[in-house]
Design a protein around this nucleic acid. Structure first.
Lengths: 145, 145
DNA sequence: CATATTTCGGATAAAAATGTCTTTTATTAG
DNA sequence: CTAATAAAAGACATTTTTATCCGAAATATG
């Protein structure tokens, strides 16, 4: 709807990893894909991007898997995940697809999008993985179905 | 960023047609594509969708082309164009891609998206082609570059 | 050290979106 | 009626996104 499929999986995966890390568990791609209902191999690719961007931590070998440090759950905000996967089109791009579109030479929708986009940006900048993971923990929210 | 490319072209085309209809001119696909900087043949396909959905009017043959009645410029809102081309994912779809996501079984972002999505929906429902066309007419806004 | 496990990286495949081309149909003007 | 014009419709091509597969690298355990 707003993010690419890859980005949706990425956010869901990150939240699930955070949730499990809160319990002290490291999780494998297989488990993640199962729990967030996503294709395994594709999810693996996305997790690579997240680790390269230091959003999650990965450990190879037996007992390995993915995890997030408790403090990183606070500092990692959604906008970082979105930017790592989808780039910054969501912030920068013109709503009507013009290459150049700004206050001085705006597309017909420019002004109408200002608020919407700024709300979205604020929301993404202010929402931490920790916040999302705790909602899950308490059983208030869900990652599949 | 938010709409598909097809939808972006569709909106830009509709606004341009409205602008020209205000001047009493019917316009061809070729002219439209030139003026909104879009691929001709692809734009033609999108215009077919718009005519099928009674958003614009088309006339075949010499002196033919696309036009919009003055009264339709008021009644046609952006949400109708978006719905005709992109469907209603933008209104219905879950931000994290869950098949089912609502207040009673929400994804972790559900509540955070409620405002954003409702603002977007209102904006699309309240913005008429006429409003957008007049902005262009006055030279306040642009459809290309 | 050998083995099993798990992520990493690159190649490949399938599906969807974007874009093109060609023929048909409608319509206007001479 | 004929020729020219413009949209409609459908087949085809390209590009991007989504998804899979397999060998390599790392590492924990016995």
């Amino acid at each position: 709807m707003m993010f690419s499929k890859a980005c949706e999986y990425g956010i869901r995966a990150a939240v699930y990893i955070a949730l499990q890390s809160l319990e002290g568990r490291r999780v494998s791609v297989t488990e993640i894909a199962e729990e967030i209902d996503s294709p395994v191999a594709f999810t693996a690719k996305i997790l690579q991007q997240l680790t390269r961007n230091n959003i999650v931590n990965s450990v190879k070998g037996p007992t390995g898997g993915f995890e997030i440090e408790r403090e990183d759950m606070d500092s990692v905000k959604l906008n970082m995940i979105v930017k790592a996967i989808d780039g910054d089109q969501i912030y920068m791009g013109c709503g009507l697809g013009l290459k150049e579109c700004n206050a001085s030479k705006p597309c017909p929708l420019h002004d109408k999008f200002v608020d919407i986009r700024s709300n979205l940006r604020k929301m993404l900048q202010n929402t931490s993985l920790y916040e999302l993971a705790t909602g899950l923990e308490v059983g208030l929210t869900y990652l599949k179905r």
